[in-house]
Nucleic acid binder design. Structure first.
Length: 285
DNA sequence: CGCTGCTGCAAACTTACTTCA
DNA sequence: GTTGAAGTAAGTTTGCAGCAG
């Protein structure tokens, strides 16, 4: 088993999640900030993720599990409860449907491959406006609709951060507050990073195991060589210095300072090629 | 030019709520 | 019906960068 095969090799070419994704349409200031942050991050964690540059984790975004079930609308806006218009609007309005008053909307959703249609009673009376954003509201769990999640996901795949214009457009398209879109992206980035960290961890673990095995093997080899040398020592002692000559081939290629190459005990063995993640050039960039 | 206070943004951390087994 | 874990929306804290004074 070599270090340059299998898990380690694959594992050592990592790039953090969406890092390399183009941040489209970003304000130069934002781009600069992001760039600096990325540099800061890589500097900060270089000692932890030596040469690990994980490739964009496509599987991550593609397998990101969307919540398949939506809360019962009646739970969200229970009868008799004070109505939180903003949250209801956000949680219940399909991005493709126009905002409706006191309406029942049908929401299609997939569940285990089957499409089921659910009727939701929605009590909404006004369009969410950003002016209302600052109003504090008691925390109620909002569940985004499947359409909203899909659109947000698609948008995230294009750019992991939003500029104000994009945020505004998305919010408008999804009928959400800008703050909600912003929060969703923040949480999405956090989830991406968390997942990436888990992947990194796994790879480091594998790498560690490989190195441990390699270390054991080398120690064993060293012990064997030592015992071999000890066993041969008396033979050396008995010979006069003049009789200790090298064979022509050894003499020709030998380096005076290189003990191993002149040693008659040297074992013809391919030099192990270590992939030291801590010295990998990609870590420097 | 350097310092300071303000502002905005993103990350990190935390809390609260929902869903499901 | 209850409970604990997992998922996630949203709140809070912190750090950094840009800018004006």
């Amino acid at each position: 088993m070599g270090l340059d095969d299998g898990a380690c090799d694959a594992g050592l070419v990592l790039a953090l999640g969406s890092q390399d994704k183009p941040e489209n349409h970003l304000h130069p200031d934002q781009e600069k900030k992001i760039k600096i942050r990325k540099e800061t991050f890589s500097l900060k964690y270089d000692h932890l993720f030596p040469s690990l540059t994980l490739g964009p984790s496509d599987h991550e975004t593609s397998t990101y599990k969307l919540s398949s079930k939506m809360p019962d609308a009646e739970k969200v806006c229970g009868v008799g409860e004070p109505v939180d218009l903003q949250k209801q609007a956000a949680s219940s309005v399909s991005p493709v449907s126009s905002f409706s008053n006191s309406s029942s909307i049908k929401r299609e959703r997939e569940s285990g491959g089957e499409e089921e249609i659910e009727v939701e009673k929605v009590m909404i009376s006004s369009r969410v406006s950003d002016e209302d954003e600052d109003q504090a509201s008691p925390r109620k769990k909002l569940r985004l609709t499947k359409e909203q999640s899909t659109i947000l996901e698609d948008s995230f795949k294009e750019h992991a951060t939003l500029n104000p214009k994009q945020k505004q457009d998305l919010a408008k398209q999804l009928n959400l507050r800008q703050r909600q879109v912003e929060v969703w992206f923040q949480n999405r980035r956090a989830r991406t990073k968390l997942k990436q960290t888990e992947v990194d961890c796994e790879l480091l673990k594998k790498c560690c195991e490989t190195l441990t095995e390699e270390n054991k093997r080398l120690e064993k080899e060293l012990q064997e060589l030592k015992s071999l040398k000890l066993a041969a020592a008396p033979f050396y002692m008995q010979l006069p210095a003049a009789t200790l000559t090298l064979c022509p081939s050894c003499e020709k290629g030998s380096n005076p300072g290189d003990v191993s190459s002149t040693s008659p005990f040297s074992i013809a063995k391919p030099k192990p090629q270590f992939h030291n993640p801590y010295n990998h050039p990609s870590a420097a960039s």
